[in-house]
Design a protein around this nucleic acid. Structure first.
Lengths: 208, 208
DNA sequence: GTGGCAATACGTAGTAATACGTATTTTTTG
DNA sequence: CAAAAAATACGTATTACTACGTATTGCCAC
């Protein structure tokens, strides 16, 4: 009996490649979605074992879909595909009951291993993020970003200056700077100008 | 008689999706390469009408392949696929006899139109870069980046400070800053701190 | 109610990036 | 060879970012 899947990605050819590949490997594709909203609808309708979702999609991100599934008590196991090599995501992913995480340049064997593992109820996080030689502990509580910090980060990711953020949020510029400093410490970024901006832009899709 | 193609991309599923899609549309795929070097070998071996190359691939970039084809007098028409929405590329592309340019999130109809146009000897540049309402003139001569400017940009893209760049190149820090200022003017970047760093990082693959 | 954490805001200080210029020297092109 | 372009370097000035701190208030959980 084959594993039943929903797949979602906004890139048509990647979606096609994924669908064809999975079908060739005897998986059953119940639905193919090009945006997050459609993906959620299909997950509800078809109740697949596993959903493979791109992180950044129009209408709803992969994570937003996962969030909504959790909220509605949907049992489908979720695998996220993304460009992000970021340990911080694990914190988010675990909280949202996301079972698998693959970088978008994965090898096809990784994909198969991930689906099989996740379908059995386990978890699978790409080796490209978590090399075996490193400590795989998730981000500790003291590194957890606060709601205000995340809000500031979103603005930073939009290329807004600290002064402008302060004006928007009706707080002091110095407060924004303090938040920035705290965030840099928590994320352990390089002590370079622009580290935070680069991080924020690279991780824009997971700031929620 | 179908158009004969070579396709190259380091992403296996995208490659698969692309290959399947093209074959379904009656194109003949002579070869499928996962890196630039292999792509070049296949172009030489099979002499396709059109080669569809990802810009950023291991071993040789799509542009490096194009360069080498030009050097060897290979007549294959080249289409580049990339993430970059950057007018500056046209300057480079034209110099290298690249006939087509598509953003990686293209619609499939765009791809077909591009192949057909390019195969007839024309050029096709994605509408997503060059909206119809805007002036499509290529970068003017006065906006052309000089060799020194490009060298500086490469370092900037690596996250190196002006002072560090100056040390590496045995020039004054003030000279680096002047170059930066000139580059910002030429590229008409936003007058914001970090515009140049963001641009450099986003366009790292085309700095040559 | 109490303690811990988050949010807010300030102090002092340094520096990297950018602007708008001028000028000289070197290299390239016609 | 002469002119133009590129490379180099400096002047003056501003500001956005970051560090390393202190402190108060507000909010939340127990």
């Amino acid at each position: 009996m084959s594993i039943k899947l929903i797949i979602a990605d906004d890139h048509p050819l990647l979606l096609k490649g994924l669908k064809d590949f999975l079908e060739e490997n005897k998986y059953e594709i119940l639905g193919v979605a090009s945006n997050g909203e459609l993906a959620l609808q299909m997950i509800e309708k078809f109740n697949p074992s596993v959903a493979i979702l791109d992180l950044e999609m129009p209408k709803m991100t992969g994570i937003e879909v996962a969030k909504e599934c959790l909220k509605r008590g949907i049992k489908t196991r979720i695998i996220l595909l993304t460009l992000h090599k970021e340990k911080y995501i694990i914190q988010q992913a675990k909280n949202l009951n996301i079972a698998g995480y693959l970088l978008k340049d994965f090898a096809t064997e990784d994909l198969i291993n991930c689906i099989e593992k996740v379908n059995e109820g386990g978890e699978y996080f790409s080796n490209l993020i978590f090399p075996k030689e490193k400590n795989i502990n998730p981000t500790t509580a003291e590194d957890k970003l606060t709601p205000s910090e995340i809000k500031i980060l979103r603005h930073i990711a939009d290329g807004v200056t600290s002064k402008e953020i302060a004006d928007k949020l009706f707080i002091a510029e110095r407060t924004v700077e303090k938040h920035r400093s705290n965030i840099i410490s928590k994320l352990r970024l390089d002590k370079k100008y622009n580290s935070l901006l680069i991080w924020a832009k690279n991780n824009k899709g997971i700031l929620f």
